[in-house]
Design a protein around this nucleic acid. Sequence first.
DNA 1: CACACGTGGGC
DNA 2: TGCCCAAGTGT
Length: 291
Amino acid sequence: MPAHNLATTAVAWYDANARDLPWRSADATPWGVLVSEVMLQQTPVSRVLPAWLEWMARWPTAADLAADAPGEAIRAWGRLGYPRRALRLHECAVAIVASHGGEVPSDVDQLLALPGIGAYTARAVAAFAYRQRQPVVDTNVRRFVARAVAGAPDAGPATTARDLTAVAELLPEEPELAARASVAFMELGALVCTARNPRCVDCPIATMCEFRLSGAVAPAGPTRRPQRYAGTDRQVRGLLLAVLRESDGPVTRARLDLVWPDADQRGRALAGLLADGLVCEVKEDLIGLPG
DNA sequence: CACACGTGGGC
DNA sequence: TGCCCAAGTGT
């Protein structure tokens, strides 16, 4: 299974089957692409879609966001989850204005230096906004490559350097075609080569897939820790921040006390939010979003 | 490297 | 019903 066949086949499939998402449209800006990638970190497309549209209408450029208060970014983030991403996105906008004249950089190393931008997002922006040949490795691509190339039922633990090399080898040399292959691999992983119940009958590369060729049928299912949520500090942080998002101004500690019965855990959660800069003590006994 | 970090929907 | 999951990053 020559690697270029994988890319070519995936691109052809993508052209016919890709979802029509606004950040993929020809007139999407690099800033719009960057915002979408940050929102999509651990949040499903269906929930990102309306949030992205509202966000881009309000802050069409990095400079627009940078000029507003970080608390407004946290508020507009709504219930996308992991609100520190909103704070980092605001910091990112400030850095883009301060260090890059308001333009999202196209260089991977410069992207990596921005707050909230890691190995995945930096290359996603370089590839999707600037049409570069970059290995874009997310959980979908790791799973797809693990099965199609390595013949494994699922991706093992992430090994960033090795993953980047393996995926880079699958990309066509020509940058525009490579960028299309990158998004095609992701889409294939998201829609067809899914974690549970992969739809191999609909998979364009099934005849080249090492996992299929090896005769294996049912994927074992990814191994992951339980990751409880109910009753954790995370849930309490979420409850506290929800109060602030939904109130017009700062609130008293007494108001925050209502969200959770355990004072120790409440205190720990609030201290964490303060330490992270997600909330501020604007006055004595008055907690608000950062201005 | 393991863990913390939100949220809502699917099965 | 709970458990698993969804385009990761930072420490």
